[in-house]
Design a protein around this nucleic acid. Structure first.
Lengths: 344, 344
DNA sequence: GAAGGTAATGTAAGCGCTTACATTTTATCA
DNA sequence: TGATAAAATGTAAGCGCTTACATTACCTTC
């Protein structure tokens, strides 16, 4: 020992160094690349580390190493099960690689999202995960200027240049719409979340129109009701469709939550699903299978998406190259809420 | 201008200072305590900041200021809606005060939780939010040694000394159990999540026993089935109760997810709820009101808890004092799944 | 056994910011 | 108007770590 007065404060690298009788450089090497240090030296240093209960100072490390081992994510909200699920997998994978998650949410508000992105960058996020492509070009410019690698999730669009790990929202909904049309439905309504600065919702709506066109029908026939995310808003939207377009035989919702709302409203109104009207969702979250009738929907591999996104970002940090976009497959879950169109 | 060669790299405080023709100290003051700087100087500096697109370097700031403005939280999992909801509110409130959330999850695993706590501290979390009291004393010692203020959420137990913002799990369940007993139930079963290192679940189970005792009944009569969190596991547990204790007239579950599982199993088995058997939940998440029959449960103010927890932690960082524990009220939501006990 | 190479360690220069303290400018008032 | 206080700004010393480069120790090899 060679101590001074009180051992009050937190030990630093230098304390460890002097205890182990080596230079700070050696201690640093011991901690960061142990094989570049002799065996007995290493043991001596590690012993000192334990004895002192040393742990590196984060700020100093970040400053000197120029990275924080922290990855940021900005999602619309954790209260939406799809994001909670994907993010959980994302965080788990990050943790497995020694990275930590910095999290912020935008409440589906573009301006708030921008603020949050800036905040995460200011907090030293080494890379960023963002949901969907839609965003002011200015933000992307900012990110590039700061050199923060960014990955898009939840969307995959071959027409876009940015790297994404996601699925083709439009194609997925188009596939489901084909099935709906195949059941004889022509008067289709769509309940959607706001499509402004939300390419996922917009793509899904487009998918329905695509299928109408394919079937030789007029895409303008599709009644669109835009409403915020929620069960209650889904109920209201259903009522609105019934009131304004009583001929409707199928309602396609851009997510399961709105669809469950529709189902509830149908029951309350005494409308039978699927005998009187069919309802479909999107996402395949837990309540989809729990609903009564069980909801026909599009299954999205949220967990896999989160996990892969994390892997991608970790790769970027290592190789400094963000690879190709990756499209994940979706799958139609045919359940009870979709049936043949009723006769007019 | 007074520049050298390429304006490639990220601008620093010094760049701003020389552009604005002031010292770095003044620039720093402009950014951190603007009122300590003259008006025109301030304007000149801010102009330079914008011109250069300057943003502070996180590591340097953290190192010099000895804080990161980052608050950590370790939760069991985001996939559980109660945590997603509470955390969402927590993060929103943090954001409102310029703090950022560092998030990790433990998957209900004590050892993983410890790792995550250490990781967040290593990433410079200024303070920590933890779920429940149960935890190795060693971890608390570590946190104290490192001087990281810690707040407990989701639990409130006057017998514990640590500061918490939560609710009294035991008392809440006791109250619900009283209502169950008042409906004539005596053969009560309890489906619970693992109670080891989970004082919330344990408290809820205890609450049932408390009520039994109050009613002059033997608390040992309560059949306990422990199973991991999930709808599927809830279903299984329900079957197990039916098989082993067919006299049971009420099943109290420690959370809504297990209860919904029980409800499903009941339907599959042709057991009517509540005519044949009553089922109760805990938490009051969305599916509780969506279930058929609607689930009688205990409403927990998750969002308020998250918000208050954030406020507390922010206070600590300012005043260096973590105040009194705060108990939040819960409320029994009487719905359809609880009814009178069937006659033997 | 001298030359040349490799492995282990040390030296010290930053990284970009905050802040205590020193200095200069401006305002106030007898 | 000069003394004095208050406000504005500057100077410079760290904060604790990483890492390029320099140095030393230790093997090989012919």
């Amino acid at each position: 020992m060679s101590q001074n007065e009180v051992e009050k404060s937190v030990p630093t690298l230098a304390d460890v160094a002097s205890l182990a009788n080596v230079s700070t450089a050696t201690v640093s090497r011991c901690l960061n690349s142990p094989d570049r240090v002799g065996k007995d030296t290493r043991e001596r240093v590690m012993k000192a580390v334990n004895e002192l209960g040393y742990a590196p100072n984060f700020g100093a490390q970040a400053l000197a190493a120029r990275q924080t081992n922290t990855i940021g994510a900005v999602i619309p909200t954790m209260e939406n099960a799809v994001f909670a699920r994907g993010l959980q997998a994302f965080q788990e994978e990050l943790g497995r690689h020694g990275k930590t998650l910095l999290l912020a949410s935008s409440a589906y508000d573009a301006e708030l999202e921008e603020q949050q992105i800036r905040a995460l960058v200011a907090r030293g996020a080494d890379a960023l995960l963002l949901i969907g492509y839609d965003r002011e070009p200015e933000i992307y410019r900012f990110l590039e200027k700061r050199g923060v690698p960014t990955l898009i999730a939840w969307s995959f669009n071959p027409a876009e240049t940015r790297t994404a790990v996601g699925f083709d929202n439009r194609a997925a909904m188009r596939a489901l719409a084909r099935d709906v049309i195949a059941q004889g439905h022509r008067n289709i309504a769509c309940i959607t979340a706001p499509t402004r600065s939300n390419d996922r919702a917009r793509g899904r709506v487009e998918g329905i129109r695509d299928a109408k066109i394919e079937a030789g029908q007029d895409p303008a026939e599709v009644m669109i009701v835009e409403t915020p995310y929620g069960i209650g808003t889904g109920e209201e939207a259903f009522r609105q469709v019934m009131a304004q377009a009583p001929d409707t035989t199928a309602i396609m919702c851009v997510n399961d939550v709105l669809a469950v709302g529709a189902l509830r409203a149908a029951r309350a109104l005494g409308v039978r699903v699927p005998e009187d009207i069919s309802v479909t969702g999107f996402d395949d979250i837990e309540i989809a299978a729990l609903a009564d009738p069980e909801l026909t929907t599009v299954h999205v591999p949220h967990r896999e998406m989160g996990r892969r996104a994390a892997q991608r970002l970790i790769e970027v940090l290592q190789n400094n190259v963000i690879g190709q976009s990756k499209e994940l497959p979706t799958e139609i879950k045919m359940r009870q809420s979709l049936g043949p169109a009723r006769k007019a």
